[in-house]
Structure formats: C-alpha cells, structure tokens
Amino acid sequence: MNPVDLYMLAGIAITLIALYAALTRAHLFWKVLAINLMGTGIFLILLAAPSRRTPEIADPLPQAMVLTGIVVAVAATALALGIALRVIARSDLPFLPDGDEDDPDSPGSTGEASR
C-alpha cells in the first residue's frame, strides 16, 4: 500500500468521526472542536489524494486551498467561541436548549423564558 493512501484513509476517518461528534456532543466547545477536526480531515484528503496521483510533481493548488481553509477555520472558531461564551453568559449552560422548535406551545417559540 502506498503510504499516501494511509493519509487519505485517515482523512476520511477523521472527517466522519468529527462529523459524528459535531452532531452528537451537546457541549458547544466540543462541537467547535469537532468542526475544526472535520476541516483537517478534509484537508488530509485534499492533500494526500492528488500527490498520490502525480508523485513526480507536487500540486500547489490543494496546498493553497488548505492554507485558505486553515485561515477560514481560525476565523470561524473565534466567532463561534465568542457566541458560545455569550450563550453561556445568558443561560449559564454550555448547551443549546432542547425543545421542539416546531411547537408553538413550547417555551422557545413564544419568547417566554424557559429557565
């Protein structure tokens, strides 16, 4: 097996594990961590697969894309953590309140404080 394949498979695994965690961990910080990891998994796929195809020449385009992606991830993380801190300031809990948003009788939809 080509060692580059290993990185590509790791990329798939990390992307999907992180996607799972982003959807199943309720704590906001883990959601943000998971989103960061999901990005890095995609970067691994992006960088490993083309270098597998043309080993004789490095492809600078995926490298440029990954660099852009890293900066975007930092920006998104900063904003997400800022808003998460404000959620905590308002409700004292690091979770998004549960409740059926589709139900007009639920507290969330009428504007009454639910806590």
């Binding site: 992307t15 996607l19 906001l28 989103i35 999901m38 083309p50 385009l61 997400a80 308002r90 998004l96």
Partner: peptide, 26 residues
C-alpha cells in the same frame, strides 16, 4: 442561542460542501 445554532449548522454545511469539492478535485 438561535445565532449559535445557525452558525453551527452553517459551518457543518460548508464543510460538507468542502468535502464534496475535495472529492471532485481528487
């Protein structure tokens, strides 16, 4: 809370899009 949820959905949605971009580029 709504803005936080929106941001998370939006980020995960963009990353799923980026995954597609990566696969197509590959």
């Amino acid at each position: 809370v709504a803005g936080m949820r929106y941001l998370l959905v939006s980020l995960i949605g963009s990353l799923l899009y980026l995954l597609g971009v990566a696969l197509l580029y590959v």
